[in-house]
Design a protein around this nucleic acid. Sequence first.
DNA 1: TAGCATGATTTCTC
DNA 2: GAGAAATCATGCTA
Length: 449
Amino acid sequence: MMEEQARMMQALSGVTLAGHSVQGGMGLPPPHGHEGTDGDGRKQDIGDILHQIMTITDQSLDEAQAKKHGLNCHRMKPALFSVLCEIKEKTGLSIRGAQEEDPPDPQLMRLDNMLLAEGVSGPEKGGGSAAAAAAAAAAGGGADNSIEHSDYRAKLTQIRQIYHTELEKYEQACNEFTTHVMNLLREQSRTRPISPKEIERMVGIIHRKFSSIQMQLKQSTCEAVMILRSRFLDARRKRRNFSKQATEILNEYFYSHLSNPYPSEEAKEELAKKCSITVSQVGPERPSPQQEIQTSKVSNWFGNKRIRYKKNIGKFQEEANLYAAKTAVTATHAVAAAIQNSQANSPTTPNSGSSASFNLPNSGDMFMSMQSLNGASYQGAQVGANVQSQGDTIRHAINQTTGYSDRLRHPLYSPHGLNGNGGWHDAPTPTSVTSPNEGPGSVHSDTSN
DNA sequence: TAGCATGATTTCTC
DNA sequence: GAGAAATCATGCTA
């Protein structure tokens, strides 16, 4: 430091002051009239001043204050000050030259791009829609995942809000600190050679420091988004078993349509609605709409069931028999009740039975079984009005119950729909899918398969 | 905790 | 795009 000052002193004795030589170039009037000795006098004067500046720190506070005041009022002060500023500026420029041309930080660019892509930074447009859409595509469903998406979006919005709040805070703090430092430097510039450029430089340093803090914020925000994303994707993989009731409904449908276990979209929706009661709960929380079985889940279930059934018919035989027996009993009771009902009521008012909304057996299986139940074809049974009426009522009654009537014929139910290759597609597709007695709430079997 | 059950996902085919 | 088949990953139970 002392060496530097000495160098400056040395430089000052011959250096230019804003382009002019010290001697006669300062615009300062010679203190005394003798040209020959004036130069030496001024040099001595400047030397004195510099000596005083250099030794000011060695003195007591009071002495230093007094000397400072004297120096401030010295006639040479403005000139000397500008020279010092010039020297500082020159040295500063050489240091700065290397620093200023910083290439954009690739790490920062990556973070910025990611935040933009995730919808955290940049204009708000339903934050993270791209990510959510990607996740939706991965899930293989559209609207089915809307609930999860809304959760994801809600959490992303939270992150976005926190990010922007923190960013604002940082910017505010940066501005406040910058203003404070600028004021301080301006204040000090009265006693120290601080040029405006130097203040600018200082501001730049402060901004760089604050942007490094911002980078940390961006980094942690990115991490939060990644965690959220991975959790969201993991959540899709998590499963909870369907409730017993739901499984029974699905099984009933499956075994009643064993010749063609491909529910149509409507059937899937209906089944989804029917099964939406719950999925089995592990915790104490109550079922939410999120837990409702959706049509895609129904598709999954049927896909799994078909495959597993086909792979191990023997194992599922028991289950099939169980459902057959169970529903056969119900069906028999229903038939008996229907006959009784039809006899008690007016013969001209058929279909006055129950109004169950979910007619599982409105399928080819059911229609075929009706034929066998009547001991003749359905068409052949239409002999008289009463006969027809009774036939309709019985058929309706069975329709309203379960439709495992084909199993009434077979004490041990066999999967007649499976072909030799183990596929269902070549199975005898029911000729009539729309049973003559189809109700508005009935579920169709998918004939496209 | 192992082994089975089962819902979800991925890959491939038609 | 729907379904088959394989596979993954979690839930459940003995």
